[in-house]
Amino acid sequence: MTPKRTKELEPSDEELIERFQKGDREAFEKIVERYKDQLLNFAYRFLGSRQEAEDVVQDTFLRVYRNRKAYRRVARFSTWIYTIAGNLAKTELRKRKRRKLFSISDLGFEEKDYEISDLSHNPEDDVEGTLKEEIIQSEIEKLPPKFREVIILRDVQGLSYEEIALILKIPIGTVKSRVNRARLRLQKRLKHLLETEK
């Protein structure tokens, strides 16, 4: 009955979630540790706001916690968690639109997009790098959400077409064409930056 342990390997995501399904809280903590930053990067690039992105990631883990029993090993855990995070990020975007619609100016306690990045910024960061990042980020945000999500998953997160297809529940062909179209748009918009990029 001893677990097969030929090498001292880190448990897989699937092993962790199964342990968590059996009540092991520590396994959940490990999952959080493993995924919090990559999910934050995804949500941050998608939404453009650190605060909203953090809320999305918090909610993602809360969903994982709440719906742990719903996970079945037929799917990869990473696909499952990214699907949750992606859906929450899209919901956040819709909420933001709605908030804008019902003018927020006279509702002072309504959430606003404020940037906190300058407060946690390293003062030695070069201005040029920050400016470049801002330009790229703002062009990503101008993409329609369906292009935005594929390009972030592909080029920022480095996921395969197959994984993206599974996460977004769309055919691989659609992933390909969205990646192409998103890149063409970005190439046009970021022309000046691309010329200096070696």
Binding site: K36, L40, E54
Partner: peptide, 30 residues
């Protein structure tokens, strides 16, 4: 070459990390 450069540009975006309170807030919410 343009596609490769664009990909490098996107990959060069700095990574962000969750705030120090992230874990504590999550545990509290749970």
């Amino acid at each position: 070459s343009r596609v490769r450069r664009l990909r490098r540009l996107l990959q060069s975006l700095p990574a962000v990390s969750t705030s120090p309170e992230f874990g504590a807030i999550l545990r509290a919410r749970i």
